[in-house]
Design a protein around this nucleic acid. Sequence first.
RNA 1: GUGUCUUUAGUUUAUUUGGUAAAACAUCUCUCUGUGAAUGAGAAGAACAGGGUUCGAUUCCCGAAGACACCCCA
Length: 449
Amino acid sequence: MSKPSIPKGTRDFLPQQMVKRNYLFDTLKSIFKKYAFLPIETPAVENLSTLMGKYGEEGDRLIFKILNSGDYLSGVTNLAEQNSSTLTKEISEKALRYDLTVPFARFVVQNQNELHFPFKRFQIQPVWRADRPQKGRYREFFQCDVDVVGSDSLLYEVELVQIFNEALTQLKVPGFQIKINNRKILSGIAEVVGAADKIVDITVAIDKLDKIGLEKVNEEMLQKGVSQEAVGKLQPIIQMSGSTAEKFATLRSVLSSSAIGIKGVEELEFIFASSAQLNVDQNLKLDITLARGLNYYTGAIFEVSAENFKGSICGGGRYDDLTGIFGLKGVSGVGISFGADRIYDVLEENNLFPENLLQTTDVLFVNFGDAEALYSMKVMQQLRSRGISCELYPSSGKMQKQMTYANNKAVRFVAMIGTNEMNENKVTLKNMTTGEQQMLDVAQLMDKL
RNA sequence: GUGUCUUUAGUUUAUUUGGUAAAACAUCUCUCUGUGAAUGAGAAGAACAGGGUUCGAUUCCCGAAGACACCCCA
């Protein structure tokens, strides 16, 4: 017999983990609701065409494709001349969702007549990526998304900053930093420098500044084909330092000739100023190296990091054209995503989950025999109607076995109903923590629990 | 897609110049059929169901799988 297993990058969740996960989801949900977002769900499986081309080349590769059912090779023409990428389209027309944002855009277009705009939704569901798993990276993981579509108001960016702040504070995520940038600034930089096609290479290189130093960064850019002149122009930005206000000043002067760049700076300035007014700017940080691979972002982009954790725990941004791809033009959206599994890992590593999460059975009824069992079930019916969680041991086996079961399950009380109790219409209740026990009638029992 | 490491009971780890595998915790039973978390006794359970080298492989080689790192990302 081969051992059963699950694919790498996927996990089973035991009860102890589930209560923690639910705590995390419930916390986020309650906050999302406070900001008036409504829940939706979409299917795990989308049409492959819905997903392809939205995440960049790298993203396309990481989409889990589903093989067509039946004799999927029968319709393929010229099998011998096909390569993997042309063949994929012929033998797979469905795929597992890669994130929640693109399916949401599809959802909005498809259901546009049912929705009232601006439409605020939250969605907590798993997504799948055919990535190589490693620490903090899974092939199946949950995203908790909040998005607004149908408004280009920057107030929503500010609201999302508030949500980040409230959620991460409430969850006690240690040393979280909300990094923010704007795609328009990146476009502006590319415009000024005259290297529009190199913007990704430039940001990737600049992002390594802390790691490899200025010289190596410049070296890398030259290597990627950025001109010497352009690298020269970038120096003030790369070496930008000081307060956020000073950074904005630097950006304004460098980008003065780029209308779109200035627009990006103004947007960020608004977000920073408003956040300061609302007192949620303590962890907000301008980071112009933030690029984000998802190529549908057009305005503000967000990413959140936590102390001692590699990679981001949340991400998001403004996308102006996403629904346009599906045929609904002029609808702007902005949203963020909480990486539940990574946040879980951070909380777990730092021991930040509340202690009292493990809800267990309140009372276990010892089974002394058929008649006693039925009597116990009647009592339990009354307890349950009061919201008390109780269970009966299934067989009248040894007392020890039943007590051990209660003990292992961390049951708080054990109730015993034998012939004596039945005759007197009472229940013997034992407190499993203190060991005390007493005879009570049902009304007293309920008060006690 | 690239690289490094790992692979033995449910879990965590031993073992050997290549000669028939040891333990702890967990599980179950008994000690003890109306009182658990104690003690003691006992049971069941393992080498990647792959390939190769060898008289013989858990040990060496290949393959596979997993973990981690790079890339990218939640």
